[in-house]
Write a protein that binds this DNA or RNA. Structure first.
Lengths: 341, 341
DNA sequence: TTTAGCACTCTTATCATTCGAGTGCTAACT
DNA sequence: AGTTAGCACTCGAATGATAAGAGTGCTAAA
């Protein structure tokens, strides 16, 4: 849909004004902020058209105009000029991220905190996905006579552990057997291949002696399972309460955000490196008044995850997008540096 | 402060009625729920006394009465009869906790979820404190030519890991040296003893060869540090938004809860096994309209942590306390079972 | 000491009124 | 054909008056 230059100018002005004030914007206010040499009546006509086209909405007949999600979309795609990342912000981000290079999860957590602080929105992060990760190491740690802790480490640095309780006492020979099996049939195997079916076939090959191994092996499968699933983290939920648009309606959103499954789904849908989903563009009805901005960070060829912000549709896109892009880039860089060499 | 039996009866009735409805309770309503053979005027007189004594408050001259934090306190200490844990609730708790016996953190998380669901409040949990824990195992896992992951396991089952980046390449001899040091001077040492000072003295004893070990050792110190600190977890924050008393005021509380440090402090203060802090009894002003109910769970002699709920002062104490006690008992039991033998 | 009765207080809901921001339309103008 | 001034109109927000209702405190009698 092509818009005349003047309509574009007006639409941009409405969006920007509304982002700034949160009040429906009328033709008079626009006159000031636009320094065009036209009258308010002309602007009214143009705005009326924009309403027809679906880019603007008016809460009631005698109110100013408010952008629809289509309006925001047009603005974001065609009109918006991304702001510069100011020096102070950059420093803040650097400081937040650099402190915790050693631990991916902590790194993400800190990045989320900074992001939430900067944007006054909620930040979501996913831990690096282990899609193509392989098992790097499996350790057995005796805890008591009948309990061992199994520790699993994957090639992309994910560490998972779980207790496993055995029916009989744990012997060194059992451990040896287990390590043998592990060396032969677990180490180096892609995590996603470690399925119950795989274990079945393993048991068949190895015969009787694996019987006592079964609890251990199935624990390994559990761990593999949980290593694949990238966890979702959330920071700064309470920031959302500051925004007028959620007044009284905050519960639905916060409740939605507090459940991991839908959140995972939400973020998992994304395929591109950078994505903005505005209001009703989101599939989940709980987000129909919110915008999601997602950026991917990457580690090496295959690995990576996402970091993003969730806030009202009336969010300061031009200011926040550069921050998010910078932060995701920095995460990629930092994680890469830690892992590769 | 001794109260006449009738005053006690009235106080109890006011508290219970207010818990049920959230409306200031007047003398008439009390008449019904009290089936005493007195008139409303008598009750009014008594209530007037209770206001003088500080147990009740009235929002304005012609409103009913509302319990003060002293009123709740008197009720909780002297008047309340704990309810029975109903069968369905017990089953729900059992189901929530049993599913994840293998992993202490996950166990707590699930317990918190169930608790939040049952109480419609926020649930807080701390991971088992490692006060007297010892280092059980230290592992070096090469990640790349210059990066190793160090994994620390303590006697109470806490697992921590961190990447450590070295200036020079990692050799097998370095690893051997490290393991030797670890065996000699780390394994079995109480975690809280692993301080920078301890490492200094270690370096002095071992001489030059430890120089290259220093990054590794100080990472071990970091990990020990973080193993000591029991983490605080939070579930069901969004539940709080349901309560009228937080309407419009929710931000302060949620913001407070989202910060780990004060939360840790809050829970750390507790010394007894079971504790109730009502409204202004809390030190933090953000909690002056909230109640905290905390129960300790224990593992063995020394270890343990807390689980509790945070909600409005107008909380259904008699119903929720049994649930909390049951859940904390179950956590103790389950964790114990997993670790000991 | 208790109680009935009653005047009084304060909140809440409702409704009419007003005010003002902003619109849409029309007719005139360039 | 597009633009503009002018004006009637709409709708929400604010204001204020009024009424209803809940609950109290006090007084005088039982």
């Amino acid at each position: 849909m092509e818009l005349s230059e003047r309509k574009q100018k007006i639409l941009a002005a409405v969006v920007e004004q509304y982002i700034k004030t949160g009040e429906p914007v009328g033709s008079k206010v626009l006159l000031d902020s636009l320094d065009m040499s036209v009258s308010s009546a002309t602007i009214r006509n143009e705005m009326s058209d924009l309403v027809m086209l679906g880019y603007l909405d008016q809460p009631h007949t005698s109110a100013g105009r408010v952008p629809t999600h289509l309006g925001y979309r047009y603005y974001v795609d065609n009109l918006m000029k991304n702001g510069e990342l100011n020096e102070e912000t950059r420093r803040l981000i650097d400081a937040g991220v650099e402190t915790s290079a050693g631990d991916p999860e902590r790194l993400l957590e800190h990045a989320g905190e900074v992001l939430a602080y900067l944007t006054k929105c909620a930040a979501v992060m996913t831990t690096p996905a282990g899609e193509s990760a392989r098992i790097k190491r499996v350790e057995l740690v005796p805890i008591s006579s009948r309990t061992v802790m199994i520790v699993l480490l994957t090639s992309n640095g994910i560490l998972r552990s779980k207790l496993c309780r055995m029916d009989m006492g744990i012997t060194t020979s059992m451990c040896e057997t287990f390590y043998n099996i592990a060396d032969a049939a677990l180490i180096g195997v892609p995590v996603r291949n470690i399925t119950p079916a795989y274990l079945q076939s393993l048991a068949a090959t190895l015969g009787m002696e694996t019987l006592s191994m079964f609890p251990l092996l199935s624990t390994v499968a559990d761990l593999s399972q949980s290593a694949i699933q990238s966890q979702v983290m959330l920071e700064g939920q309470s920031n959302l309460l500051h925004h007028r648009e959620y007044e009284g309606r905050a519960y639905e959103l916060l409740e939605f955000l507090s459940r991991e499954d839908p959140l995972e789904q939400l973020i998992g849908q994304s395929r591109s490196d950078f994505e903005i989903r505005i209001g009703k563009e989101n599939i989940f009805p709980q987000l129909e008044n919110s915008s999601l901005i997602l950026a991917k960070y990457s580690i090496g060829e295959d690995g990576g995850g996402s970091i993003g912000i969730i806030g009202p549709t009336r969010i300061d896109y031009p200011r926040l997008i550069p921050s998010l892009k910078y932060i995701s880039g920095l995460i990629s860089e930092t994680m890469q540096k830690a892992l590769e060499d």
